[in-house]
Computed example of a mutant assay.
Amino acid sequence: MNTAEVVDRYYELANRGEWDAWCDLFAPDQTMDEQLAGHVEGRETLREMMKGFPAMYAAFANTPRFVVVQGEQAAVISHISAMTHSGTAVEAEVCNYFRIVDERITYMTNIHDTVPFAPVVGR
């Protein structure tokens, strides 16, 4: 897969809730700077973190609005629409940056307003 295909697959798997397959898109030694979870190193650390994701959301969608790909890098502006199990809606604009090497995400960061997520993370 090229960079654009990996990015497309990232959103496809996230929107289907296939978190184990989603984690497989990342390199074993990946690094992620996640707005809410902080600095995450290693695919297996990420996989453990994502096991709790279905308990947080009854519904989750991350829809790309604008995608830029250049070589091994991509930036995506997207919109998250989610619903907690208690019925709280989460709506947020997001920007993700990806570095993809040998068909795996080696680095990713996301930037978004944390306020819409306060009911989910208790902040």
Rank of each mutant, 00 (worst) to 15 (best):
G42C: 06
G42P: 02
G42Y: 02
G42A: 04
E44C: 08
E44K: 10
E44Q: 04
E44Y: 03
E44A: 06
E44S: 02
T45C: 04
T45I: 12
T45R: 10
T45Y: 11
T45G: 02
L46G: 05
L46Y: 02
E48T: 11
E48Y: 09
E48K: 14
E48H: 11
M49G: 09
M49Q: 13
M49T: 10
M49V: 10
M49C: 09
M50P: 07
F53E: 12
P54R: 10
P54S: 00
A55K: 15
M56F: 11
Y57Q: 11
Y57R: 01
Y57F: 13
Y57V: 12
A58R: 12
A58G: 10
A59P: 11
A59V: 12
N62M: 08
N62S: 06
R65M: 09
F66P: 00
F66R: 15
V67W: 00
V67F: 04
V67Q: 03
V67D: 01
V67I: 05
Q70K: 15
Q70V: 14
Q70I: 12
G71P: 08
E72C: 08
E72R: 13
E72Q: 13
E72W: 01
E72V: 09
E72D: 15
Q73W: 14
Q73E: 15
Q73P: 09
Q73R: 15
Q73S: 15
A74T: 00
A74V: 00
A75R: 10
A75V: 11
V76W: 03
V76H: 07
V76G: 01
V76E: 06
I77Q: 13
I77G: 00
S78W: 04
S78M: 04
S78A: 08
